[in-house]
Amino acid sequence: MFAIRMFITSIPVAVVIIVITCRLAEASYKPTESDIDPGILAVDEEKALGYRFNRQTGFINDSGMPFRLGDLKGKSAILVFSYYTCDGACPAFNADLGRLLLAVDSLGRVELGKDYKVVTLSFDKNDGVKTANDFRKTLNFPSKLNDNWILGVFEKPEQIKPFMSDISYRFFWSAQDNMFLHPNAFFFLSPEGRIVRILHNTTADSKDMELALVDTMFNRLKPSQIITMAISFCYSYNYKEGKYGLNYPLFFAMGSLLTGLGALGIGLFHFIKRGKSKEMST
């Protein structure tokens, strides 16, 4: 009879769980309003996801050395586009990224430099090594960020347009504001150089950044990262909000599994206990 009583008492609990989960899912279902005009300043996520940038396109970094995206082979990367003569928004946007990454670093599961690098590329054909250098000075990052942050400009300015248009990254010069208008997006690249996730500084927090980084290296598990991977199973990406949310069905199912295991465990416990008391009485 014990088992039946257990079962009956578990019904209201199950109902409560169902109701709560539905509420949560409903909450996550509401689309959020964004103040960026999506038509102009959004990246075509559908098109860009999975895309692999041309690995052979040449860049020059702020110390004048040439490099290519292919050189990052084997490491994940966060790629952002800016221009270096910008005086307000771009440094702020890069600084935002730096702040988020320091927060990710402090969590200690994904490490800048060891697991991934950051690359800022300028889409302004007038940028060069000098403006890049100035930009780095403006940013004034701590050494951890500074050492693993590449600032680059295109080797050949005519390659800028095709490189950017492949992912429908639109930007234009606004003479009125005397600045470039462009999307502020973080591109998360896998070690194979493919875009795995696109986040925006307006919505992403350090948790989203960390989960997106784990997504990029998901295919190259190191045994030491097993807990990180397990954490990432608990979240799933919400395209509408641009954030990661808890993966409710997983918890729901885990709860169900525990119900089954618990029923079996309690049964076994009682069986063993009863067996012992029987032995004592005889």
């Binding site: 899912a25 395209y239 509408k240 949310g245 993966n247 069905p249």
Partner: peptide, 24 residues
């Protein structure tokens, strides 16, 4: 439990398995 979530997705508009809204 997983088919129940399917049911709520189909008839009650939840998004447990709709990727656009955070499902998997």
């Amino acid at each position: 439990s997983s088919v129940t979530l399917l049911l709520t997705d189909k008839y009650f508009g939840t998004a447990f398995f709709v990727p656009a809204n955070g499902g998997d």
